[in-house]
């Protein structure tokens, strides 16, 4: 067990956002948190990694657990000059060889000397992924990590995540409202709305009445559309927008 939460309750700005969550994360599984805006997905992630102390319940993390975190958005102040290599060397400076390898693994080789400000949205997210990979994580956390990517680009990104999972034997915890792409890439899905509405394999969750009540039947079609695309893989790689 890498992370285990029992009766976890979290609040932000004094108001409870997430109530009574029981959750276990094991090595080698890909778990996705879905839910509408404001449903507490990011709050739950913060609680699980220890960035937000619980108001009730407990979170236990494996001793020495290495967490690779790919954040939802990273506001980089234009006033902080930073190369990709410098960014990847925070907080611990990394040898150039390791930096190059991580960038290659993340699908953006040769960016080490670029300024962070000069990257496109897609490149930026992959540099964030490379940063998470550098520390050989036990848990890889992706918070809306495909926002800068188009749909085929996002699908390629998730295939890369699956490859990374098998190579590092880490757990992957993803947060998304990008249902049709993310859900099918997951082993387990938790549907959130201030609490855990329902959970299980993508098939179980998308047919659960609680999920339908939250997302309507419209996503059913999109989900089917994704599976159609997935059956006919046209090898969409690296569709980053510059």
């Amino acid at each position: 067990m890498l992370i285990s939460a029992k009766g976890l309750t979290l609040a932000q700005g004094g108001a409870p956002v997430m109530r009574n969550v029981d959750f276990d994360l094991d090595r080698g599984e890909i778990v996705t948190l879905v839910g509408p805006n404001g449903s507490g997905k990011s709050t739950l992630v913060k609680g699980l990694i220890g960035a937000l102390p619980p108001t009730a319940g407990t979170v236990t993390r494996m001793p020495g657990l290495r967490i690779g975190y790919v954040p939802q958005s990273l506001q980089l102040d234009g006033f902080l000059p930073l190369t990709v290599q410098g960014f990847l060397g925070l907080p611990t400076r990394q040898p150039a060889r390791d930096v190059d390898r991580a960038l290659t693994e993340a699908g953006v080789p040769g960016l080490a000397k670029r300024q962070m400000k000069a990257l496109s949205g897609g490149q930026f997210q992959r540099v964030l992924l490379a940063r998470a990979l550098l520390m050989r994580p036990d848990v890889l956390i992706l918070d809306e990590a495909t926002q800068g990517l188009d749909q085929p680009g996002a699908a390629a990104f998730y295939r890369q995540i699956a490859a990374v999972r098998s190579e590092l034997n880490c757990a992957v915890l993803m947060v998304s409202h990008d249902m049709h792409v993310v859900m099918a890439a997951s082993d387990r899905v938790l549907c959130l709305n201030g609490h855990v509405c329902c959970q299980g394999t993508p098939d179980v969750v998308q047919s659960a009445p609680e999920y339908r009540a939250l997302f309507g039947s419209g996503t059913q079609g999109a989900f089917a559309l994704y599976r159609h695309e997935h059956d006919h893989d046209h090898d969409h790689h690296h569709h980053d927008h510059a």
Partner: peptide, 19 residues
């Protein structure tokens, strides 16, 4: 220096690195 830079860049990122 390195810790301060990490915390300046993003508090959550720092937290995940034990800072």
């Amino acid at each position: 220096w390195q810790r301060l830079l990490t915390a300046t860049l993003n508090p959550d990122l720092a937290q995940a690195s034990g800072i």
